[in-house]
Design a protein around this nucleic acid. Structure first.
Length: 198
DNA sequence: AAGTAACA
DNA sequence: CGGT
């Protein structure tokens, strides 16, 4: 019997796998609220001094952070002075399952960056290179408003519940998000799961 | 250059 | 307006 989910899996490029409708916003959005009640969304500053259009928080042992001093992972949220909220089991399980479906068995994320896109917010093209082990993939979960995700010369329209896994030859691919269009919902949320540390 | 502006 |  064929895998019931097989038709939901699409390989976009070598190392870029799209799982449509894999995540459930009804479960994940309340957990985002819980996390933000402890480590609130904030707009971070890039080393040049400009602020990002997305609002950001994190959960898990490490949180991606940027200010005038540069890009890095922090184990303590600089805003609260306390550790980032724990990564909810539903987050961890989702990321591990998505990675496994994409062929990355054994993925063990220690960081989940949560980006909140109000209409007009975007993410410039960049490469994730603040992690130690580039053999580990990245799992990106799209919730709420739709968006256009660009990676490795591909444009992927993403809707609520879609998950993109990129690793292997695509791990160092440039990627970004076009400005999010206004719609029926207030935000697009993106969960980015990574193995950042040892 | 995880940014913005100018330009083709 | 998206890519450079």
């Amino acid at each position: 019997m064929a895998d019931l989910f097989a038709s939901n899996i699409e390989t976009i490029r070598d190392g870029v796998v799209l799982l449509r409708g894999f995540a459930d916003a009804r479960v994940l959005l309340p957990l985002i609220d819980d996390i933000a009640s402890v480590s609130p969304f904030r707009s971070m500053t890039v080393p040049g001094g400009k602020s990002m259009s997305v609002a950001t928080t994190s959960c898990g042992a490490r949180g991606w952070y940027t200010d005038a001093r540069g890009y890095r992972y922090e184990t303590i949220d600089p805003v609260t002075g306390r550790p980032w909220p724990a990564m909810p089991d539903a987050f961890r399980t989702l990321a591990i399952d998505a990675a496994a479906r994409a062929g990355f068995v054994g993925f063990d994320p220690d960081s989940c960056l949560i980006n909140r896109y109000a209409p007009g917010a975007k993410m410039g093209a960049h490469v994730d290179k603040d992690e130690l082990d580039f053999n580990q993939p990245i799992v990106s979960v799209s919730l709420g408003l739709p968006a256009r995700f660009k990676i490795a010369d591909a444009v992927i329209p993403l809707s609520d519940g879609d998950v993109v896994v990129f690793g292997g030859p695509a791990r160092k691919a440039k990627h970004g998000v076009s400005p999010v269009a206004a719609g029926a919902l207030p935000y697009r949320f993106n969960l980015t799961f990574r193995r950042a540390g040892p």
